[in-house]
Design a binder for these strands. Sequence first.
DNA 1: CCCGTATAATGAATTAAACTCAGTTTAAAT
DNA 2: ATTTAAACTGAGTTTAATTCATTATACGGG
Lengths: 227, 227
Amino acid sequence: MSATPRHTSRARIEAKESSILDAAEKIFARAGFDGAKVSDIARAASVAEGTVYLYYKNKQDLLAGVVGRFWTQLTLGAEAAIEPDATTLEQLEQLGRYHLQSLLNQFEVVSLTYRARPQQEQDLDQVREYVRVFDRIMQRGVDRGELPKGTPMGQLRDVFFGTLEFSARTLKLRERSYDHSVVTNLLSIMVGSTDAAAGKLKGKEPSNRDLMNTLKSIQKQLKTVGD
Amino acid sequence: MSATPRHTSRARIEAKESSILDAAEKIFARAGFDGAKVSDIARAASVAEGTVYLYYKNKQDLLAGVVGRFWTQLTLGAEAAIEPDATTLEQLEQLGRYHLQSLLNQFEVVSLTYRARPQQEQDLDQVREYVRVFDRIMQRGVDRGELPKGTPMGQLRDVFFGTLEFSARTLKLRERSYDHSVVTNLLSIMVGSTDAAAGKLKGKEPSNRDLMNTLKSIQKQLKTVGD
DNA sequence: CCCGTATAATGAATTAAACTCAGTTTAAAT
DNA sequence: ATTTAAACTGAGTTTAATTCATTATACGGG
């Protein structure tokens, strides 16, 4: 008698919760957090206002639900977008493309992330989970010998996500659409630095040819954009 | 009779406005935007609640005032922190240090920036003004010949500010204090890419020695941090 | 198939806090 | 000292989040 749900199937409840989240996402994205009324969200979900509060403690918590689900889905999408057999560099490019494209496509929801919990409490767990996709790629790169042992992953993670996020804002601000060169350029920069570190840690002097190729690819990529 | 202020000196009014902003900054930083009550802000400024609304249309507008003043002061501080005669690289390092330190010291106010106006209307003008400090350094670097003519300033600006912002969040999250190596590593990466571009645009093959020095400096800096 | 009842849902009532505005005070020009 | 427009005040209004007493529903057992 303990494991028996006394009422209402799990599926039914989850469907309702999901429809509330759908409605909330729509209204929050349209009107922003302050502009969104819980009564509007309830109406959009075909539910009474009080029902929302059965599923979420308050409006902030509802926002956290929307944002959390978004990042969870993003994690799944990212994992699907990455080919397991590709090289580390290719995987980073796949993640970079996917990330930038997602930031642009769902700019409003991403923006809501920063309203979720300013810095109080534990940060959004789902965001941390997403970031691990990057960490896994890098770790595998090190394990495979494609990246030097001492690669500063934490630093590069901030470079990767920080740059993409600011690039997305810049693109939005200038009303431009997805631009693949942003990702390519970013990777050129990161690769330059990891290659450099790799050279030393492998203990062999890189040949002039190797160096020139690295630098040429960097310079080639950088040229395609300009300001 | 037109230019004569009929009542109350400008200085007096500006002092009051400033004291309201001081109070608002204190309360917003302490409690966050939603947690801050206008009545608390009014009390902290020794002013009636209605008076706040004589100076600011609403609570959002008050927040914009606080955030705007912050970035304006940041611009002044940045300009003071940069030695006019230093090389471009040194100036970038000075700006980077100053920026990261400011982000960490005033983390709460910086966070409020993103609540100010999600993406609606024109973005905070004062933030744009601040960003120009970076642009001026880069432009001067190009003019002086320290940076290649085709340096993609827009891209590098996103790398610079994006990385520093995410690094600041990471440091806060891990409860670490200012770490200069973050700036140094970032510059190594950026310099690597500009040097590469410079090599081509100057039309001369970089010597193996030059390349090795660039890469060694990058690798040296990267080594100091780790994850 | 119907009943009992625990769970889920409702929406009117409560509360909290942003915002307004009619009345009062103040600064400075005369 | 008087005048008066600008500044200020804070009680009252409004809006919207949150609560909770009441009603509806799902479903296991009879």
